[in-house]
Amino acid sequence: MAVTCTTLEQVRDNIDRLDQQIVTLLAERGRYVSQAARFKKDTDGVKAPQRVEQVIAKVRDLAQTVDANPEVTEQVYRAMIAAFIQQELAEHAVLTKAAEPHS
């Protein structure tokens, strides 16, 4: 829960503290994304548009529950998911190449 700040410096200190937590959570999420690449057969599986929409619907609902802006939440998640898909596609390509028989 956000506290009421009395100075801009307090606001910025709290944002910096949250950024530390958010980046730490992004790193953890990214490690799970990397693991997911091992389980997907092809690039369509990596892109998984139906799964993306499930996640978006879930976080929009969660945003409303915790009194966050659903539009902002969706935009942030779409950008984050797109970046993670690019990471996963690159990792999937490496795994696929490593699995190919050498001639």
Rank of each mutant, 00 (worst) to 15 (best):
R29K: 15
T96A: 12
T24Y: 14
K40G: 03
I85W: 03
H102V: 13
R78V: 00
A93F: 06
A68I: 02
L95I: 13
D42F: 07
Q54L: 11
A68G: 06
A90D: 11
E88K: 02
R78E: 04
V11I: 03
M1K: 09
K41A: 10
Y32C: 11
D19S: 09
I81K: 00
Q20Y: 15
R17E: 11
R51C: 04
D67Q: 12
D44S: 11
K58F: 15
A68P: 01
V55E: 01
V55Q: 00
S103E: 12
Q75G: 10
R31D: 09
S103A: 15
G30K: 01
A98K: 13
T4E: 15
R31G: 05
I15N: 12
E71N: 08
E71V: 09
E53D: 14
V23L: 12
I56M: 06
A79D: 11
V66E: 12
D16L: 07
L89R: 03
A93M: 07
V3I: 09
L26M: 12
A27W: 04
A83G: 13
L8K: 10
V72H: 11
R38G: 07
Q10V: 05
Q87K: 04
Q86C: 12
Y32W: 15
H92K: 06
H92S: 02
V55A: 00
K97Q: 14
V46A: 01
F84A: 11
Q54E: 10
Q50V: 09
A63R: 00
E71Q: 10
H102C: 08
V46F: 00
A37M: 00
Q54D: 08
Q87A: 07
E28I: 04
D19V: 02
T43H: 09
E28N: 11
I56G: 01
Q86G: 03
